[in-house]
Design a protein around this nucleic acid. Structure first.
Lengths: 338, 338
DNA sequence: CTGAAAGCGCTTACAG
DNA sequence: CTGAAAGCGCTTACAG
């Protein structure tokens, strides 16, 4: 049925109008689903559009309409499954709401992050979601606000106000994990942490608080820091054991750090949950099938992404809203590792 | 220094032209970096633009210019780190080339995939890269071609011609892994496979071929199938052992399947590389820090993504090109699991 | 209920 | 080397 377009160029609403014998205004109205057009006319227009293989030109519409159905999201590290899960939850909600998503990966690189944000601005994004790269200046949200683009910051904070935020209750989560280990009888518990600019300080504070509740002194020798990835977790666990700290358990900064620690334990012929106890943070999909399955603090990464999308959508709908935040309530998931 | 825009509306090239005392054509030319404008004038224009906080409106430019600097990529399953790594490689190359990427996640859902592709078309994407959801009709590339949009298919094939493709040499890779296990003395080797529509058949063929080279009969009881994820790998390994097939090793469809198998082994008190040998396929980042570290077939996921981007960019530059393909050459990476 | 006209912010020949 | 004019494909008042 597809008929060749007269000139070979893609058909526009003008062609559709001619085909359906109406004016182009009518076509435009039909395309927008306006109730002002009687169903019979609308049907004729839609049939004509289908016959010509017409494709709506969203950029033209947006230029005229001064709207945008595009949302930009820039993520710092997709190599961490936590962020991949957050992104999927985010994308899903945004697509359901009729948006299309511009995605960028900063690789924790500030220059790249800037480039990405700037190009999304040129693309006229209706909103931006940012998981800030390490070292992102706290003034960034203000800058984006000055651009007139709604912004939701996720996971990592950037100062304590001036932007909508979706993340997790970090101190509370780490305290949960620590209390669990304490309850299992451990007294020398390591903290395999992250680096400055991440949620390291908050999670460490939760660990400390749980210790204090039990009247157990804080021992800095039990706290390690590294880039919170598999290699970092691997190295920190080895350092913890090599240091002779007498640790029998460790709270890990996040799940992938714990995976690295699991691997280091295995290489030493030790089995988590038996010879040493380990907890993670995030509850990524992989945690359930780690070897052994990882006990962790569940903050539902996908849901976190979906909530971030919801905050942004609400802000776009009503820019006057008060500051919005979402903090995932942590829940301990016990498996075999500790 | 930022000066308020007269009317409160964002400045356009007209404002910049007025500010710099030139015509808007000149501004446009300067913005495009045309050599026709003398440096002194260009500098004046750039200064004026900066003063006004001017932002280039790419949609308007593209509408007029009939170009697009946007590329759509739709991925079937970001929960598999393999695809996340491919996406990162892809995105990186595309951004370096000056494009901005529209990203969609199909979740292996055909209707969603269609919706995503359609909306990227409306956004006027300059090109598309697709990792097809399970069950994608082989006619899809033809359809996209009819839209006039360059397409690169990745990882999974869709018929054997009519589109550019970036993937891996699957039979060869699986044969490599199988030969290694054979060389280590294993004779009863399981194949923990995927499902139809994935690369299952190709990888199984490689496994079979390696067996035949050694004159070892193919035993269907050693071949299992499941969704190629952690749970699938976990279940297949248990089934393989419960079946009493006498298997002492297994070639896994991909790395995450192997991770699931590693977990199942651990739950049985068995250690891969010692009590049972296991190989993966992909060499995702996690493989190096699995417990124990996973021997696998490296197909360099990030590079695969970058190559896919290169194919698409070449096709955009010259639509007349002959069919292009990239098959990652598999390389065996030996670690502790087998 | 539908049409003619203006205009969104750019680029691109075409003059001069 | 720079300016005036037309136009990309839409939407939006405004008439009728």
């Amino acid at each position: 049925m597809a008929r060749a377009v007269p000139s070979g160029a893609p058909p526009t609403i003008l062609h559709v109008a001619a085909e359906a014998q109406v004016s182009k205004s009518t076509v435009s109205l039909v395309l927008q689903g306006s109730p002002r057009i009687p169903e019979a006319t609308a049907e004729r227009v839609r049939a004509a559009a289908a016959r010509l293989g017409y494709v709506y030109n969203r950029r033209a519409a947006e230029l005229r309409h001064k709207a945008s159905n595009t949302i930009g999201v820039v993520i710092n590290d997709l190599m961490n499954p936590f962020f991949a899960e957050v992104l999927v939850g985010l994308e899903n909600r945004l697509v359901e709401a009729g948006y299309t998503v511009l995605m960028g990966h900063s690789h924790e690189n500030l220059a790249r992050q800037d480039q990405l944000l700037r190009s999304m601005r040129e693309q006229n994004a209706a909103g931006l979601v940012l998981c800030p790269a390490l070292g992102t200046p706290a003034a960034l949200p203000r800058q984006v606000k000055a651009w007139g683009i709604p912004l939701t910051v996720i996971v990592r904070t950037l100062g304590s106000s001036g932007y909508d935020f979706a993340g997790s209750a970090n101190a509370e989560g780490a305290a949960l994990a620590t209390r669990h280990l304490l309850g299992a009888g451990h007294r020398r518990i390591g903290f395999l942490g992250g680096v400055a600019g991440t949620m390291h300080a908050e999670r460490l504070a939760g660990y400390r608080q749980a210790l204090e509740e039990r009247g157990i002194g804080f021992d800095a020798a039990l706290v390690l820091q590294a880039h919170p990835n598999r290699q970092g977790g691997h190295d920190m666990l080895n350092a913890l054991l090599d240091r002779g700290t007498g640790a029998t358990a460790a709270v890990c900064y996040n799940d992938i750090t714990a995976f690295g620690a699991l691997s280091a334990l295995g290489a030493r012929g030790l089995r988590a949950g038996h010879d040493f106890a380990l907890t993670g943070f995030d509850n990524v999909l992989d945690a359930a099938h780690a070897n052994p399955p990882l006990s962790t603090v569940d903050i539902r990464p996908g849901e976190l992404g979906a909530q971030a999308a919801a905050l942004l959508l609400a802000r776009i709908a009503d820019p006057g809203l008060a500051r919005q935040t979402y903090y995932a309530a942590p829940r301990l998931v016990l498996r075999q590792s500790g």
